[in-house]
């Protein structure tokens, strides 16, 4: 069953057309990934789902409801959470306060349970819960951003390059966490990644974006096997694979 369907969406920054007619579909329970070169419009698509920038044309339907005209905070309240590009945690607030901010739209009675869940996923955050967000390491900040997004009990989680700037060990770890979130907590995930190899292996399906348009789509396996994609996005990734195995 379709959870999120994006049809013919265009979006602009002033005169720049960042999305030029995008069609994407995410089904319940899936992990869907979006890969593409820098400036392709991936982050823009995630932001447009949240209504900023707004879709100038086209429809975005979430759980049967057209959300393309809603203000951002209402879209979020309907069950979507986002760990945006650049993490955007609150630097002067502690880890705990950041998490509480994430929980601001959910019912207080779930608070303890949800905290436990994210601390189980990211034990380091529990140790650091009194530290100010700005003083966390980059990787810890990334975990905090994801944990904060989870605190709102979303049905759909939007992640923008969660592996950015992480050590190879941590990259693996973060992808396994995403898998766990999806499988155990029944959260649908829409994932933007530069790390195409890992993302496509993890995802049920994937889309490839260039210049504000979707070029290709298919299951993770299909895209991984595709020659064009291999040469465009997976150069070098094969080496790492080779070395690792």
């Amino acid at each position: 069953m379709t959870m999120l369907s994006i049809t013919g969406v265009h979006a602009f920054y002033g005169h720049i057309e960042a999305l030029r007619g995008v069609d994407v579909e995410v089904k319940h329970g899936e992990i869907v990934t979006l890969i593409g070169a820098n400036g392709a419009g991936k982050s823009t698509l995630l932001m447009t789902i949240c209504g900023n920038p707004r879709a100038a044309k086209g429809r975005i339907v979430f759980d049967g409801e057209d959300i393309s005209a809603k203000p951002t905070h209402e879209i979020i309240r309907s069950g979507i959470a986002q760990a945006p590009e650049g993490r955007r945690i609150f630097p002067h607030m502690t880890v705990m306060e950041n998490l509480l901010m994430g929980a601001i739209t959910s019912e207080p009675r779930y608070l303890d349970e949800d905290l436990e869940k994210v601390f189980a996923l990211f034990p380091i955050l529990k140790e650091r819960r009194e530290q100010r967000g700005g003083t966390l390491s980059g990787g810890e900040q990334q975990m905090l951003a994801i944990a904060r997004a989870l605190m709102s009990r979303p049905r759909l989680l939007l992640l923008d390059e969660p592996s950015l700037g992480l050590a190879p060990m941590l990259v693996k770890q973060i992808f396994s966490v995403i898998k766990a979130i999806n499988a155990e907590q029944n959260v649908t995930v829409f994932l933007v990644e530069q790390n195409a190899y890992h993302a496509l292996r993890l995802a049920h399906r994937g889309y490839v974006m260039a210049n504000g348009r979707i070029l290709m789509s298919g299951t993770g396996k299909e895209l991984l096997a595709n020659e064009e994609i291999r040469s465009a996005y997976l150069e070098g990734a094969r080496d790492t694979k080779g070395r690792r195995s």
Binding site: N52, H73, I76, R88, F90, M101, G102, I104, R148
Partner: peptide
């Protein structure tokens, strides 16, 4: 601290 992040958390600024 960050208005955009707040909006992304469902706060009506």
């Amino acid at each position: 601290e960050d208005e955009t992040a707040c909006r992304a958390l469902g706060i009506n600024p």
